[in-house]
Write a protein that binds this DNA or RNA. Structure first.
Length: 273
DNA sequence: AAGGATTCCTGTTGGC
DNA sequence: TGCCAACAGGAATCCT
């Protein structure tokens, strides 16, 4: 499921192919994504040229001169290039035709993703409230501990909260907490300064490493050139409930926090400390 | 105000 | 073997 590294990987795969390219047509085969694609979406994109691309949080932002094409991959969204003669796959919902003849297709089985055109990014809901980028200098131990002191919410909920820090989803939150020897359910206000230093370092390390490995492919994540990621090979605890810890051999358990599975090693990540 | 539950969706998996 | 329930999860929105 796309988190920051998968979105970054998608962006990097997209950029060399579509930067400077002109969109000549847009087919919306199914507008019912997380939010219904607006009726004038295709009109705004058609005849536009891609001027630049960037990532903010888990959004891909494509600047078209007169506004922004914003894509969120949700849980199962992916973008890929195809020849116009290639048969459509199930769940190919949006087709962008470029002047040079190829198509960019948005495929999303669960339809948790979204796609909008906005003239001004600040009109996106919650855009203004997004927390700092995890790989920026703004996200440092002092910042995190300040946010943690104010709440007894589980630390895992904190680092997955986009208002606290963006881009960290279930996989990377789980892995970073394991590497930091912090139980996912620990109250944020019990996290020490030393632990915060470790946690920030490990979040950044996980994200950097995953980007370098092309993301995590659990089921079907592929970059726009159809290449899988391989960070899943380095996962320490995510998806390993009932198996033994690579570090100490103890059983990996799991708790549910905010309706998501939160695996941890009871020996490496004790709740009381 | 803060925080927990609900909601959207389909493919996969486990139990009987 | 087939059927159905449970599960996976990002994040807005609706409660309390």
């Amino acid at each position: 499921m796309p988190e920051l590294p998968e979105v970054e990987t998608t962006l990097r795969g997209l950029k060399p192919h579509i930067k400077g390219q002109k969109i000549v047509d847009v087919d919306i085969r199914n507008p019912r994504l997380r939010w219904r694609i607006a009726d004038d979406f295709a009109t705004h994109l058609t005849s536009s040229t891609v001027e630049s691309l960037e990532r903010r949080a888990k959004f891909i932002i494509i600047y078209l001169g007169q506004g922004y094409w914003v894509i969120h991959l949700g849980m199962s969204g992916s973008l890929s290039f195809h020849d116009s003669s290639a048969a459509y796959l199930k769940h190919d919902h949006v087709i962008i035709h470029f002047q040079q003849g190829y198509q960019l297709r948005y495929n999303d089985p669960r339809r948790f993703g979204s796609m909008v055109f906005v003239k001004d990014l600040s009109t996106l809901p919650s855009w203004q409230k997004l927390g700092p980028e995890p790989l920026s200098d703004e996200f440092d131990p002092m910042y995190l501990i300040k946010r943690c002191k104010k709440t007894s919410k589980p630390i895992k909920s904190m680092i997955m909260d986009q208002h606290v820090v963006v881009g960290v989803g279930n996989i990377y939150a789980t892995e970073a907490l394991f590497l930091s020897n912090i139980h996912p359910a620990r109250s944020a206000n019990t996290i020490t300064h030393q632990e915060c230093i470790q946690l920030v370092k490990n979040i950044q390390q996980c994200l950097h490493q995953a980007i370098n490995m092309g993301g995590t492919t659990l089921k079907d994540f592929v970059n726009p050139d159809s290449r899988s990621g391989y960070f899943q090979q380095t996962l320490q605890v995510y998806g390993r409930e009932g198996k033994s810890c690579y570090v100490c051999g103890s059983m990996i358990h799991s708790v549910r926090l905010n309706q998501r599975s939160s695996p941890f090693c009871e020996n490496c990540q004790p709740i009381n400390d």
